[in-house]
């Protein structure tokens, strides 16, 4: 595959991994908030905890999204450098505060904004490097 084609394909897969990972973790977090109300950690209670978790639709949606994340991640690693994919996937750390500020009306501290800027600059710098340099495989 040509470098431009590989770059486009890699960018699309990175966007998918960031979306699947962030939304999957969000669903699990929402689902597990209900489960964490159990205070007693005896065996019987743990079994009940398992049943509550398994009965939660949002937990299953989260597990499904994380499975899609893992598949996209594997597809990415089949063609792109690990040292390209790993930092580029960190874009999620910058996107979540941006979404929270834009759509959730959340207050974002100056330190967090500077982190968003650093991550964005870093992802752009890594994004300009060749997608694949490894000869392993």
């Amino acid at each position: 595959m040509s470098q431009p084609g590989l770059r486009t394909r890699t960018a699309v897969l990175i966007v998918l991994t960031v979306i699947f990972n962030s939304s999957g973790n969000l669903c699990l977090s929402i689902g597990m908030k209900h489960v964490s109300r159990v205070q007693d950690w005896s065996l019987a209670r743990l079994a009940m905890l398992g049943r509550i978790t398994a009965a939660s639709g949002i937990v299953w949606v989260g597990v499904g999204l994380l499975a899609l994340f893992f598949i996209s991640y594997l597809l990415l690693l089949s063609s792109a450098d690990y040292s390209y994919v790993l930092p580029a996937s960190a874009a999620g750390y910058a996107i979540v505060p941006l979404l929270g500020y834009t759509f959730g009306g959340e207050r974002v501290s100056p330190l967090r904004w500077s982190g968003v800027l650093l991550i964005s600059a870093g992802v752009m710098m890594v994004g300009r490097t060749p997608v694949r340099t490894s000869t392993v495989g």
């Binding site: 750390y93 330190l111 982190g115 991550i119 964005s120 600059a121 870093g122 890594v126």
Partner: peptide, 12 residues
């Protein structure tokens, strides 16, 4: 880029 991202994640 990796150094920028590492510090950025810590700040966020």
């Amino acid at each position: 880029g990796v150094l920028f991202i590492s510090f950025g994640v810590v700040f966020v």
